[in-house]
Simulated assay, not measured.
Amino acid sequence: MIPPGNTLGMLGGGQLGRMFTVAARTLGYRVLVLDPDPGSPAGRIADEHLHSAYGDAWALEQMAARCAVVTTEFENIPAQTLHTLAGLIPVRPGARALECTQDRGREKAMIQSLGLETAPFERVTHKEQIKAALAAVGTPAILKRAALGYDGKGQVGVASLAAAEAGFDHLGQVPCVLEQRLPLEREISVVLARGVGGETLCYPVAENIHRHGILHMSIVPARIDHATAQAACRAAIQLAEALEYCGVMAVEFFITTAGELRVNEIAPRPHNSGHYTLDACVTSQFEQQVRAICALPLGDTRLLSPVVMVNLLGDLWADGEPRWGALLEHPAAKLHLYGKSQARPGRKMGHFCVLGDDRDRIITEAETLFAALSGEVQHGS
Rank of each mutant, 00 (worst) to 15 (best):
A326C: 05
L313K: 01
R359N: 05
H336K: 09
E321D: 12
D360P: 02
R347T: 05
L355G: 06
V354I: 13
K340V: 00
K334M: 03
D315N: 15
A333K: 05
L328M: 05
P345M: 09
L312N: 10
G350Q: 04
L355C: 14
G325Q: 15
N311R: 08
W324K: 14
Q342N: 01
I362L: 14
H351C: 09
L355N: 03
A343Y: 11
G356R: 12
G339L: 08
D358Q: 11
Y338S: 01
G320D: 13
G350D: 03
Y338I: 00
I363C: 15
A333D: 08
E321K: 11
H351D: 10
H336Y: 09
K348Q: 06
P322S: 13
E321Q: 15
G346F: 02
Q342C: 01
L328A: 01
G325A: 15
A333F: 01
A326F: 07
L335F: 10
L335S: 08
W324Y: 14
L335V: 04
D360K: 08
A318T: 01
E321A: 14
G325S: 15
G346V: 02
D360F: 00
I363D: 03
L312C: 10
S341P: 00
H351Q: 09
E321C: 10
G356P: 07
A333M: 04
A332T: 12
L337F: 04
H351V: 07
H351L: 09
G339W: 02
L355M: 11
D357K: 04
D315W: 12
G325E: 15
S341D: 03
N311D: 13
G339S: 05
D319W: 06
G314S: 06
S341N: 02
